[in-house]
Computed example of a mutant assay.
Amino acid sequence: MELTVYGPLRAATGTKRVNVDPDDGTVRGVVEAFVAAYPSAESHLVDEDGALRPSVRVTVDGGRVGLDDDCPPGAAVALFPAMRGG
Rank of each mutant, 00 (worst) to 15 (best):
E32R: 10
G62P: 01
V5Y: 03
D24M: 05
N19P: 04
T4G: 02
V65N: 05
M1R: 01
L3C: 06
G29R: 04
D47K: 01
G85R: 09
F80R: 08
G25H: 10
E2H: 03
P22T: 06
V65W: 00
K16C: 03
V31R: 15
G63A: 14
H44G: 11
A12R: 10
R17T: 15
T4H: 01
A41V: 10
N19E: 12
P73K: 12
L52D: 05
T15C: 11
P22H: 00
T13S: 13
P8A: 08
A36K: 06
V5N: 14
A41K: 07
G86I: 09
D70Y: 01
D47M: 04
R57E: 15
D49N: 11
V18A: 04
E2G: 05
P81I: 04
A51H: 14
D23I: 01
M83D: 09
E42R: 03
A51E: 15
V65G: 06
P73Y: 03
L52I: 01
A75D: 11
D24T: 12
F80Q: 06
G85H: 05
G63M: 11
E2W: 01
D49W: 09
V31D: 11
D24V: 09
V27T: 13
L45I: 09
A37D: 06
A33E: 00
P8C: 08
S43Y: 00
R17W: 07
L45C: 05
V18F: 01
A33L: 03
A78R: 01
V20Q: 00
D49F: 09
A75F: 03
D49E: 15
G62L: 02
R28N: 14
T13R: 04
F80G: 08
K16F: 02
Y6I: 12
A78T: 03
V18P: 07
Y6W: 13
A11S: 13
L67W: 07
V35P: 12
A37C: 11
V58H: 02
V60M: 08
A11P: 06
N19V: 05
Y38V: 09
P8Q: 13
A51D: 15
S43D: 12
N19Q: 10
G74I: 05
P22R: 00
R53G: 10
G66S: 08
P81H: 04
L67F: 07
L67S: 13
A75E: 03
G29K: 10
T4W: 00
F34N: 00
A51G: 13
E2Q: 07
T15L: 06
D49I: 08
L67M: 14
V46T: 15
D68L: 10
L3G: 05
L52G: 01
V35A: 12
S43A: 11
V65H: 05
V58R: 00
R64T: 11
D24K: 08
P72Q: 06
R57Y: 10
G50S: 11
M83Q: 14
L3Y: 02
A78Y: 00
T4M: 04
A37K: 10
V56Q: 12
G25D: 15
L52P: 03
H44L: 15
A78Q: 01
Y38G: 08
P39R: 13
R84V: 14
T59A: 02
V77L: 02
D21F: 00
P54A: 07
R57S: 13
A75N: 07
R53E: 14
D69G: 07
P81L: 06
Y6P: 11
Y38I: 05
L9G: 08
Y38D: 10
G74Y: 05
R57T: 15
V27F: 04
R84P: 07
G29S: 11
R17E: 08
S40D: 15
M1V: 08
